[in-house]
Amino acid sequence: MLDACIKCNISFRRGVFEIFTWEGKIVRNLILMSILSALLILGWQISVRAGEEIEKGAKVFRTCMSCHMVGEGARNKTGPHLNGLFGRPAGSVEGFKYSEAMKRAGAGGLVWDIEHINWFIENPKSLVSGTRMIFRGIKNPEDRANLMAFLRQFSDNPRDIPEAEPTKAPSDPDVHPSILAIKGDKAYGEYLSGECITCHQIDGSVDGIPSITGWLEEDFVTALHAYKNDHRPHEVMRMIAKRLSDEEIAALAAYFAEQ
């Protein structure tokens, strides 16, 4: 039902966004649009809520606009355009020069579904360590959900979005705050690091394998848990991470943060 609503309103909403982009009259038009949407379908309460989310998401998107365009006529800037983002393999926009890390993530099977978009915008480096996207991330889950509600309008066939709750995102990452709070034992981390630096160079050099030195501990922990939970694609890293305990991951994070 809602799916139908989305489809019939896509062009209309794109139109609204054009106004937002080029004339800046976003709020009034989005509200109007939401009302219109609501009238077009039966479940109008849901739609109003979605409309609110989109409206809020458009505001969140301002943070992204210096690098990303979305909507009709969008082109690549510092970052790739975001049309058709949902369901698109990572690193696949033609003509955009991606980091090796993003290309590798795409070839390794990373697809921008709601879960991974949510993950990425929360903390880009924790999902794709070598990404060129210089952005600390959006920590508030509601802001992320709203941003995704906004962005999904520009994808024709948004994949992996449950019909009933189009913008529901998992609250976060399977990394529980108690895991992030573990204080790592650096000496143990130094011993464990031996396994890492057979491939990841300790001086931070990158020759086909990303650098893991000087990361914020939280990013490091989140990234390793993402491998451990199969959120990040890479067989070697999944294998390595799966046999590390929470304490060992914290130990490694503490050690590498200071290298």
């Binding site: 031996g194 630096i197 491939c199 086909g208």
Partner: peptide, 17 residues
């Protein structure tokens, strides 16, 4: 291709180690 490039990275890593 990425697997090959990864092997080059590994070579640099292990020889430095």
């Amino acid at each position: 291709k990425q697997t090959y490039e990864e092997s080059i990275g590994w070579y640099e890593g292990i020889t430095a180690d």
